[in-house]
């Protein structure tokens, strides 16, 4: 572990505070690292992929003697030094040509990692020039049942979503909907999970399209969407996989108490989807209860009551109730 130094000035203090664990986290930063041999195709592919991650990217230009599946400590070190929890590592060897390794760290320790071998690659530059603004959030589409069933493909889905989703927003400007990333895989999702034979696993198709919206002639406000491919177009084959340590993953998946939705008391939803609530009513004050109105009990406007003379003057009269101090109609 790197030693933590007490900041000597305000600038370094700010930098340190920015790195601290937070309740609502910063946008994850990415780092591209080249292996000891890294073909031009891989370099271009890394640049193309990372173009959609801007501005949260740092690109390393030098070669590094790293073999992440043998020893990932160098990537962990880079991750810590640059405060980047996502690393895209490119390498190309005789045994594993044109390989991209997606690495993800938690607390600067390796969480999970997998290898994608590029089968076909068409660069952004080969498509018609279409600019997507920097920092726009992509839409995602994951097609194929295998992304819900196979643990390795689940990891791919989680990683790619994490890599490209960018800043977390609560309000989205509709102008910002500019492109969609589609990740698809064939197959019916019933592939045996650990057969050991990775060749039977379906390819992963990575496509990026730009959105074009047209006013629809139908009465709705919703526009008709058309797409144009902007690249890169890559078909991947899944290679080696480093699965997340269950303990570490559990820690990483923890939701802070403050962010957990508050439990609503006394409100339930039954099977039919109806909302049922229990209401607690305070004790009722019966003295202010409105009962039947009678003329005799009515208050006169000028303050005196029916039979305006004071009662004391009549010596022998029955008063309806003597425990009530309200004047009542007298009886002779």
């Amino acid at each position: 572990m790197m030693r933590t130094v007490k900041p000597r000035n305000a600038r370094s203090k700010r930098a340190q505070v920015a790195r601290e664990p937070k309740l609502i986290e910063n946008t994850k930063k990415a780092l591209t690292v080249r292996g000891s041999t890294c073909s031009l195709t891989v370099q271009n592919a890394m640049a193309d992929l990372v173009a959609y991650k801007q501005p949260d990217v740092k690109k390393f230009q030098k070669k590094n003697q790293i073999h992440p599946f043998e020893d990932a400590s160098s990537l962990e070190f880079f991750s810590q030094k640059n405060d980047a929890s996502l690393v895209l590592f490119g390498s190309s060897s005789k045994k594993r040509p044109d390989t991209l390794t997606f690495f993800r760290s938690f607390n600067y320790q390796i969480l999970d990692m997998f290898e994608l071998r590029m089968l076909t690659y068409k660069a952004i530059s080969e498509f018609k020039k279409n600019a997507v603004n920097v920092g726009m959030k992509p839409m995602f589409s994951f097609v194929g049942p295998i992304f819900d069933s196979h643990p390795h493909y689940k990891m791919v889905k989680s990683m790619l979503l994490d890599f490209f989703r960018g800043e977390q927003l609560t309000m989205l400007d509709l102008e910002g909907l500019q492109y969609i990333i589609q990740v698809s895989a064939a197959g019916d999702g019933n592939i045996s999970v650990y057969s050991g034979d990775t060749s039977s696993l379906p390819d992963i198709n990575f496509r990026v399209y730009q959105l074009k919206t047209y006013k629809s002639k139908t009465q709705t406000k919703v526009p008709r969407v058309e797409l144009e491919e902007i690249g890169p177009r890559i078909d991947f084959k899944l290679g080696r996989v480093h699965e997340a340590d269950p303990d570490l993953l559990k820690q990483a998946m923890r939701v802070p108490k403050q962010l957990q939705p508050k439990e609503k008391k006394n409100v339930e939803t039954d099977i039919m989807g109806d909302k049922i609530a229990t209401i607690h009513v305070g004790t009722q004050d019966l003295r202010t209860l409105q009962t039947r109105k009678m003329k005799g009990l009515k208050k006169r406007r000028n303050g005196d009551f029916e039979g305006s003379e004071p009662m004391q003057e009549f010596g022998d009269i029955d008063i309806v109730s003597d425990d009530d101090d309200k004047p009542r109609k007298k009886r002779r």
């Binding site: 959030k137 992509p138 839409m139 995602f140 589409s141 994951f142 097609v143 194929g144 049942p145 992304f147 819900d148 889905k157 979503l161 989703r165 977390q168 989205l172 909907l177 698809s184 895989a185 064939a186 197959g187 019916d188 999702g189």
Partner: peptide, 11 residues
């Protein structure tokens, strides 16, 4: 929240 859609239809 992630602007994502998960489609479990087969290709």
């Amino acid at each position: 929240g992630n602007l994502a859609l998960y489609d479990s239809n087969m290709l």
